[in-house]
Amino acid sequence: MSEECGEVKLIDEQGLRTDGRKPDEIRKTIMKVGVLKNADGSSYLEQGRNKILVAVYGPEELHPKHLALPDKALLQCRYHMLTFSTDERRSPAPSRRDIELSKVIKSALEPAILLEKFPMTTIRVLVEVIQSDGGTRCAGITAASIALANAGIPMRDLVVACAAGKVDGQYIVDLNADEDKLGEADLVVAIMPQRKLVTLIQMDGSLTLDEFKKVFELAKKGCYELYNIQRKALLEHYEKVAKEVSQDDISK
């Protein structure tokens, strides 16, 4: 936790983090679905200073054909950070990290989608990070899951992801960029909340078994809080229309 310029304190004397949150508090999160007209499904997510836009296309015909799978659809995910998403300009070309995170997001979503319903086809998930502040893979998975539901793609359950970790000897949930970089360890967990299944688990740093259990429980708690926001966003999208229609009827 020490840098050349001196000690960086990520948790102050009052037990608050750099952005004023308590250790077990997730960032303020806003989710919306159906934000893009041209995509089959879409979503927008703001988690703290993270801003993420997801578009879903498919199931559709797959080109080149030799990639097609005879028994299920091929899930293609692309995670991409826009050039202005970070402090310094990023190259628009996919980096090694982008390619890795695309694969990670695919692995997290795959168990939830009923791919076997659409053999020989493809489903494309495009995750664009507009502004990044740590935890974009989790935010990408969470946003992609509601975009898939919005596209009408059959799923076993929604998928929600959240990170937890150890910073200054304390266990914290939903790490921001500084905590991610300077913390002792972080654990990314993606779950299917209704089925109670884990679809992704990824760890950086080192934790004892006891610490791992505590951090895992904290990440799971964060996932369930985000799941409630996911549900609210999806239900609001459809119930909004019902409210508008009933208001039209009243005004007549």
Binding site: G41, N150, G152, I153
Partner: peptide
Amino acid sequence: VICTTITLVSIKGTTIKLVPLKGVYI
């Protein structure tokens, strides 16, 4: 019964009717 898409569920008599609100044509 477990829904796999966003579905409108209504019960009429002894029938549970599930109407998906979005989906692809198979």
